[in-house]
Design a protein around this nucleic acid. Structure first.
Lengths: 206, 206
DNA sequence: GTCTATATCCAGATAGAC
DNA sequence: GTCTATCTGGATATAGAC
């Protein structure tokens, strides 16, 4: 009894996840307005109505995805922040790790794409706007902070840390987009040029 | 008579331009599906019906904008290609000039955004797909070619030219997006980190 | 929980007056 | 050329059978 309820709960959770994952692919590629509920239903092999059994509206799905995307990114950044490594190693690690995740876990690229898109768009649901305005800057701030420490040690190039952080995320997003567009077909670009952006010379070849 | 016809022709052309410019802003920010004909009409202070007097469909407007965007970009690249400058100077010039245009002519950023968005999207009209598939790679190829010449002269960092060209455009697009999002409020990021991506050391400080 | 059928609404596009 | 009114289709969301 209580038993069955638990199991049902799990099944229900699973279905939700399926819908979210399917919707993520579609939203990331076609945007909120460009994705019909019917598309999501078809893509997850459910009926139209069933989607509405799990979510009360298309926007709700979208907002939940935005929330998840932002939370995952922030979590990764906080983890990075706490690592016991010199700043320039943290940055290198962050680049390598982000790119590895992008290449191996497809939904990662989609999350990046989704956030980038949503952040640039005006006609985004209020709930998503709220998430974005409170959380979007955090990864930028954390990277900027690490870069600043590195600059003090002379291992990171000079320049406004916020500017460098901007380039950092910009390139990560671009790589994610590249991955989504060309997938396994084209190989991921080599990352040396990216390192060069951030590391001072002595450090660069190390 | 022939006189009046000419004048009318000019007025008509002007209206078309107004619609295109207004639509560009909306498409770039909200995508094709996220932009209603009514939005375009309101934004250009025309009636719904009048928009249809100049264009036969929403998609037609979109495709024309994509075409224009690609053609402008290609034209600028060809101009760059033909300049009588050493490769690394061409690259520096290209970055400076692109960023200057992005900062001073607002529609430029919107064009960049529009193309990036459309290229990533699946649900784009056939006409736009066609434009993209025949033209999108040209700016990448031209920049890669210039970078390759520079590599032969030792003024451009080594690495696959296509990869470097990818980063080149990726950062330009990111700056365009930044400009659209924060406009005049936030100042444009400093470009030194970008130069570092492409130039060899001796050259970098020159 | 899951489906089909449907009510409702909204947006693309057209018709026709001025 | 420009507008308003309207047709029409399609998409969101709901109702109700199973």
């Amino acid at each position: 009894m209580g038993r069955n309820k638990e199991i049902n709960q799990v099944v229900k959770e699973e279905r939700r996840e399926r819908i979210l994952l399917g919707a993520l692919e579609l939203f990331a590629l076609n945007g909120l307005a460009g994705t019909k509920i019917g598309d999501i239903a078809k893509h997850t092999e459910m009926s139209n109505g069933l989607v509405y059994h799990y979510f009360s509206s298309k926007e709700e799905i979208f907002v939940e995805l935005i929330r998840t995307a932002l939370d995952k990114m922030i979590e990764a950044c906080r983890f990075l922040e706490k690592m016991d490594l010199p700043p320039h190693t943290k940055i290198r690690f962050a680049i390598d790790e982000l790119v590895k995740t992008i290449r191996t876990k497809p939904e990662t690229s989609l999350y990046h794409l989704l956030i980038t898109q949503a952040a640039a768009s005006v006609s985004v649901p209020a709930g998503a706007k709220e998430q974005l305005s409170t959380k979007r800057s955090i990864p930028y701030d954390i990277i900027a902070e690490i870069l600043l420490s590195g600059q003090k040690l002379g291992t990171i190039r000079k320049g406004k840390p916020e500017d460098l952080a901007f380039f950092f995320w910009n390139n990560i997003n671009g790589i994610a987009m590249h991955q989504v567009m060309y997938g396994r077909k084209a190989s991921c670009p080599h990352l040396e040029p990216l390192y060069c952006m951030f590391f001072t010379q002595e450090n660069e070849n190390g």
